[in-house]
């Protein structure tokens, strides 16, 4: 009896908590509303099952509680019921998976006109790189990293000279523009996570990973690291500012390029030619990975 009541209270209490507790999604700032929708669909379908099963269990526990003069029913199997339940469950699963995979297809299909932005993670800070006037990011390699070239850009690549480097400052993103975030780590795994953007992805040394998004509202948001990366993991923070086009252009105009910031590195003076071959392998490997993911 007590148990049956407690089960009912848990079912009802969980629903009440769901709708009335103060804790829910942080308001979204990207085009990934489909993720929130998918969560809500999943809640609807599974929530009904959750409450129904608990209430049925509570009913059984109350109705069929032990009585000396009662004997349990004897019914080893009931194929009809079992198949019926199988199909209902399968239908529920299809109902969850279909919208999920449709949205996923969108997530893995980067729009042609997306601008590439690069995030570089290292223990325990974030750096960013934006393409210059040519609209292209130059190639890079960890092996090229030095004090004169903190991003490891390839000085022989004409695209790299005008790349804009942001160190120790906030990242700015333009409003309502599709952006492909290229993610690169120079040491261990990290994960670029902005709760308002919903999307997140690991940074993996030796690879360039990515995700894409379109920002949908202006504001300043926290960047967190969401993949354990050592003792400073929880302190690996940054901020991203979403600007309207005018403000973004203004900010961009104030930023400096690789060639301006690191003339020595951009001239490639200290980089010996012998490492060229090696650098190539890393660069191509990175690009392949990008292609694969497109």
């Amino acid at each position: 009896m007590v148990l049956a009541i407690v089960l009912v209270l848990i079912a009802v209490g969980s629903v009440i908590f769901h709708f009335w507790s103060p804790w829910w999604f942080t308001p979204i700032a990207s085009n990934w509303g489909s993720m929130d929708d998918a969560i809500n669909i999943t809640f609807a379908i599974t929530g009904v099952a959750y409450v129904a099963i608990i209430l049925f269990m509570a009913y059984c526990i109350y109705k069929y509680r032990y009585r000396e003069d009662r004997r349990a029913d004897y019914e080893p199997e009931n194929s009809k019921l079992e198949w019926w339940l199988t199909w209902v469950t399968a239908a529920g699963v299809v109902g969850l998976l279909t919208p999920g995979l449709i949205a996923w297809n969108e997530f893995v299909t980067v729009p042609e006109d997306a601008t590439e932005f690069e995030v570089v993670g290292s223990q325990w800070e974030w750096k960013y790189r934006l393409p210059g006037k040519d609209g292209k990011l130059g190639t890079s390699s960890i092996k090229l990293i030095s004090d004169d070239n903190p991003f490891g850009l390839n000085p022989k690549d004409p695209n790299s000279k005008d790349d804009i480097l942001i160190e120790g400052e906030d990242l700015h993103l333009p409003l309502n523009k599709p952006i492909k975030m290229l993610l690169r780590s120079v040491d261990v795994l990290h994960d670029f996570y902005v709760p308002q953007f919903r999307a997140k992805m690991d940074l993996v040394p030796g690879m360039v990973t990515f995700f894409w998004l379109t920002t949908t509202r202006t504001g300043t948001f926290d960047i967190l690291c969401a993949e354990l990366c050592g003792v400073g993991h929880h302190a690996m923070r940054g901020q991203v500012v979403v600007d309207d086009t005018a403000a973004f252009q203004k900010w961009l105009g104030g930023q400096k390029s690789f060639a301006t910031l690191y003339p020595k590195g951009a001239a490639g003076t200290q980089q010996a030619a012998e490492s060229d071959a090696e650098i190539k392998t890393v660069l191509t490997a990175n690009n392949q990975n990008n292609e694969e993911g497109k």
Binding site: W32, T42, G100, K200
Partner: peptide
Amino acid sequence: LFLGNVIVDIPLSDT
């Protein structure tokens, strides 16, 4: 079922 459905996992993973 939330986390297995890849699109739902993206925002929730590592939280």
